[in-house]
Amino acid sequence: MSNLKNLLKAHGKPFYTGNSISLEDSQGYKLSPYLPSPKLVDAVNLSIFLENRPLLLKGEPGCGKTRLAEAVALELGLPYQPWYIKSTTKAKDGLYTYDAVDRLYDVQLASMDKQSPQVKDLNNYIRKGPLGCAFENEKRTVVLIDEIDKADIDFPNDLLRELDEQKFKIEETGEEVEAKCPPIVFITSNDEKDLPDAFLRRCLFYYIEFPSDEQLKSIVNIHFPESPIDLVEAAVKRFTELRQKMQGKHDKKVSTSELLDWFAVLREFPQDEVLKQLQGQIPFPEILLKKWEDHQRYLSEK
């Protein structure tokens, strides 16, 4: 959607172009380059435009769901707050945590010393979570809620109000925290569990498709600039062949991230040797095949 750019500019909002991160940058920030498809770039910009609609990303594991948020933050020069969800994570943890035990210790010390420096002020014991930090930040913040499906099924619903109205209340102090600038929220899900409908309704949904051969080649190229073209083509070809064979089976398919790991090893060896190996049995199969059955199935064929 070409006119999104003008539109976001007119509204004074940042615009994501999906430019790949330069090599210096990627070394400086310890980030590898990222190459989104044009449609994904549109989706990101629409989410920026609409403000209170988080972008829900789904797709095969290893297709770059998590990496997008970082790439957006870096390109737009915005602060980045990742929130990695675990099975025990509660919605409140993302907003703030209140350390009652710490305060209890301090109260004891204070009563002994007869000085009560910080105990009275509850704010000393409240620590903001990723979303809480993003709300407080003067700058628009990119928030990543990673693997939301890992949490309890109540988790997404508990965040509805916070994401919708962009404010929350700290129960302990009664203080209302309102977002100074609406954060750009990315949510990733591996589809382990269904998300509640009420939550889904408020999200923009984007499914990251597996990249085409051409895209795969450019992805390999930006990760490993100056790699010989023959090698990239041969590796991508072998990789897609393997992937096609896996099609239709319910097993885990090889992913982009595995291709990159694989290529990182391949390029270390003399080119002619690797090219020869790629014709035969897959070299370094342990990077691509993660199950014993897969080893048996795909290695014995050639």
Binding site: M1, S2, N3, L4, N6, L7, K39, D42, A43, L46, F49, L204, F205, Y206
Partner: peptide, 17 residues
Amino acid sequence: AGLGVESRQELEELCCL
């Protein structure tokens, strides 16, 4: 706002999102 008016594909994309 002028999104998704360029072509049918764009409108479709917008609705999908």
